[in-house]
Design a binder for these strands. Structure first.
Lengths: 206, 206
DNA sequence: ACAGCATTGTTGGCGGCGCCTACATTTGCG
DNA sequence: CGCAAATGTAGGCGCCGCCAACAATGCTGT
């Protein structure tokens, strides 16, 4: 795992790490997954990677910058997952929506802490530019799906905000409840099916 | 605001505060509201209240205990708000649901950080008993509403989990998006109306 | 009335944190 | 090759949460 790109003298610790930035991100995500966002400390990351406590600052100006970068990779992976979910599918809105919802919820369950981090980004005055782009880009996928559904007459007419807003809300709400463990256990079973059916009813034409 | 119950010698600081626990909670909620949960420090609270840095530990065994207590008051206030929203209303599910949703979202907007805290409670192995009770008690209100709607034939049949689950998801999702500022601004307008209409369609009988 | 005890506060200390500055080593480019 | 930029190190500052030892207060039973 630890990069051994230009090792030269094998395993002895080199002064320069090689790719500390990537290593920090990887280790940070692991810690995030295993112990939650509260237990994430730059000093501990540095220790784990065998590097001095101030080394991370060369790659992230402060802790928030690392979290932002982490979130950005999260958004990118999420987008990939959602895109992949649409491959080789029929054209019907119901089918495509079903697949996308399952992909989203699957991602949420497998990356609960990361998703929480992504959503907790204080639309800071000026987050990194790439992050802002990544943040909004994934929702375009769902928006396009809805527009296509409208074109096919499977989804009621109306502006994207008015039709898609509630859909976003359910999706986000269910995924969040599931990821944070706030779902009554008896709902974990059919919960997702019911939510999907519910949405399809909610946005079907009259 | 600062309690002056048994002052005796007017304003000079007494060794005992009088009601430090309540003062801590009050001040903590204020800080929570103004600067978010991350900036909440026991030492700072103590400083603000003119008390030594270790005094809070007499009332809360650790920081989490204070957060739990804060969350508990939040759940109780939420329940009050939801109950109040149902007073003097007609019997129809649509009307009562509308009122409850608006009350919930109103609470979420006015107490965004507090609500986040309430939801972020790691169903810890053993949180205080009162908290666990408070946590689940508010959702009963919505559940009863749905059951009543089913009895009146305004809501489709089915187990509470299967019918109510999606409703919870939308409600939670919309409130969370709104409270954390993730709603596209153009949705703040009619967003809530659309969500309510969406839910009514989604759980109407066939 | 008051002795004794539980309650509530105070002081000081420990280790950990994020961030800063000054300094050291490497790398890569002119 | 030599020097500047990039990267890592060492140490320190002021926070933080938590703990232990001690002090003031309030309460209660006799």
């Amino acid at each position: 795992m630890t990069v051994t790109l230009r090792p030269m003298h094998s395993r002895t610790r080199r002064y320069h790490h090689g790719d500390l930035r990537a290593a920090l991100l990887a280790r940070a995500e692991q810690t995030l997954r295993e112990r939650g966002p509260a237990d994430l400390s730059l000093r501990e990351l540095a220790r784990d990677l065998g590097v001095s406590h101030a080394a991370p600052s060369r790659h992230f100006k402060d802790k928030q910058a690392l979290l932002d970068a982490l979130a950005q990779t999260g958004f990118e992976r999420l987008r990939d997952v959602l895109e992949a979910s649409q491959e080789g599918l029929g054209e019907s809105f119901a089918e495509r929506f079903d697949a996308m919802v399952r992909a989203y919820v699957g991602f949420a369950l497998e990356n609960a802490a990361l998703l929480e981090l992504m959503y907790s980004l204080k639309h800071a005055p000026e987050a990194s530019e790439g992050l802002l782009v990544a943040t909004q880009r994934w929702s375009e996928l769902l928006e396009r799906l809805i527009e296509e559904g409208q074109r096919r007459g499977e989804v009621r007419k109306g502006s994207l905000e008015r039709v898609g807003g509630p859909v976003f809300a359910v999706l986000h709400g269910y995924a969040d409840l599931a990821a944070t463990g706030h779902l009554p256990p008896e709902m974990a079973e059919t919960g997702l099916d019911d939510v999907i059916a519910f949405v399809l009813r909610g946005c079907a034409p009259d």
